[in-house]
Amino acid sequence: MSFNHKSKRRKWRGPALAGVSLLCSALAAWWWLGRRPVVASEPRASRVAVNVIEVTRVRSETVRSYVATTAPLREVVAAAETQGKVVSIDLTPGQSLQRGQVLAKLDDTVLRANLEKAVVAEAQAKSDLERTRTLFDAGNLSREAIESADFAYRRAVADLAITQQQLEYATIRAPFDGVVDARIAELGGMLQPGSGVAHMVDLQVIKVVAAVPESDIRLFSLGQPLEVSFGFPPSIQKMGKVSGIAAMADDAHCYRIEVDVPNTSEPALKAGLSAQIHLRISTTSAPLSVPRSAVRGAAATPQLWTVQDNHVRIVDLPPLSEATAPYIPVENVPEGTLVILDGPDDLQAGAFVEPLPSPRRQ
């Protein structure tokens, strides 16, 4: 009996100790939770909507404009390369031409006769050379004879090439794809080598030329994209790239800048237009700042209403020296802090709010 009694006591001792341990743990947890403040999570519908903006560094952009004028990418006076009378010309200012297209023709009657004469002379010289070689190989002629025949043939070949080239010169062709700016020669006129036939310009790319003062030349670089406006007042806007920067300034201490603007889209540009080159310069201020509209209170006791964990937190600022400045420096507020721009005037510190982002400032 004694043994059974002890066995029963040991049987119930384990569960009893476990129950006591659980009870103590529950009491300790209840006591600990009772010491912590209870934070009630407010429903989203009870939050007050406010417009906010981040504390950032002010970024601003300035535009510097320079007076310019347009010029063709290249221009040339197409000229005659041989003497002759103009027998055909049909050019109109503004006419578009392709490279190699005929501008004018000169009288080539004499040149064609000379070409026929040169062809016959070349054939005769070639025949004489072949006959001389045959006789030389048979031992009937000296080496001097074959050398003389060879020289005569080579001279005839050269004369033929010159005559053919002179005949080609009688047809004057466009040196590149371009536009006729002015017609110089007239039908029936006599031209000498170098006499002008037409002034041609290449307008596939317009070159915009400006004079930049030495104080600004460091702001430009080759290949730099720039905005260009054309006309007076400016009515056409296109983009171009810097293609040339002078290495030496002029007497006014200005440097010549060239900007190439593609002229493949409408409206088509012409040379000699008034233009302006616009250089945009972006800057970032050093101090952190907020818009003046975000600062509340008097200039002597300004405050910021910030948002942290969806609650309003009031930050005191130093007195403002310039109450009308568009941006106010806030060195004691971390960058990225949300600042209330618009909201109810009766907001209090700790109020539960729903921040709505405002457009980012530039």
Score class of each variant (00 low, 15 high):
His278Thr: 09
Lys241Asn: 15
Ser274Tyr: 07
Ser289Cys: 10
Asp309Tyr: 00
Asp250Ile: 00
Ala247Tyr: 04
Asp309Gln: 09
Ser289Asn: 05
Ile281Trp: 00
Thr284His: 02
Arg256His: 02
Pro291Tyr: 07
Gln224Val: 13
Pro302Leu: 08
Ile314Met: 07
Val290Arg: 08
Ser243Ala: 09
Leu320Met: 05
Ala246Asp: 12
Ile257Thr: 10
Ser243Thr: 10
Ser289His: 02
Met239Ala: 13
Ile236Phe: 10
Leu304Gly: 03
Gln224Ser: 11
Ala252Ile: 02
Ser265His: 09
Ala294Met: 13
Ala300Lys: 11
Ala246Gly: 14
Ile245Lys: 03
Ile281Asn: 12
Leu273Ala: 12
Lys270Glu: 12
Leu273Lys: 11
Ala286Asn: 12
Gly231Cys: 04
Ile281Phe: 05
Gly244Glu: 14
Gly272Glu: 02
Ala298Asn: 14
Gly231Thr: 03
Pro233Lys: 01
Ser285Phe: 00
Gln224Glu: 14
Val228Cys: 06
Gln237Asn: 12
Ile314Pro: 05
Glu258Gly: 01
Pro287Glu: 04
Phe232Met: 10
Asp250Pro: 00
Glu227Phe: 10
Ala246Leu: 02
Ile236Val: 15
Arg292Ser: 14
Glu258Cys: 06
Val315Lys: 11
Val315Cys: 07
Leu320Ser: 07
Pro318Met: 10
Glu227Trp: 06
Pro318Trp: 07
Arg296His: 11
Ser285Glu: 04
Pro318Tyr: 09
Ser293Glu: 14
Ser265Phe: 08
Leu317Ala: 08
Thr306Cys: 11
Pro319Glu: 08
Ala294Gln: 14
Leu304His: 02
Phe230Met: 03
Ile245Gln: 06
Ser274Val: 06
Val228Asp: 01
Gly272Phe: 01
Ala246Met: 09
Ser282Met: 13
Lys238Arg: 15
Glu266Ala: 15
Asp250Gln: 05
Trp305Asp: 01
Pro302Met: 08
Trp305Pro: 03
Arg292Gly: 01
Val242Trp: 08
Glu266Trp: 13
Ser289Tyr: 00
Val242Ser: 02
Thr264Ile: 12
Arg256Met: 02
Ser282Cys: 09
Ala249Gly: 06
Leu304Ile: 04
Gly231Val: 04
Leu304Glu: 00
Gln303Arg: 14
Val295Tyr: 01
Gln237Glu: 14
Gly244Met: 11
Leu317Tyr: 07
Ala294Leu: 12
Pro291Met: 06
Glu266Cys: 05
Val259Leu: 03
Leu320Val: 02
Thr283Lys: 14
Val312Gly: 12
Gln276Asp: 13
Ile281Arg: 07
Tyr255Thr: 06
Ile236Asp: 09
Lys238Glu: 14
Gly244Cys: 01
Lys238Val: 11
Ser235His: 08
Pro319Thr: 03
Gln276Pro: 02
Leu317Lys: 04
Val307Trp: 02
Ile257Gln: 03
Val312Gln: 12
Leu273Glu: 15
Pro225His: 03
Pro234Cys: 09
Ala298Trp: 09
Pro233Glu: 02
Pro319His: 03
Val228Lys: 07
Arg313Ser: 11
Asp250Glu: 00
Gly297Lys: 06
Glu227Pro: 04
Ile236Gly: 04
Val295Glu: 08
Leu304Trp: 08
Val295Asn: 05
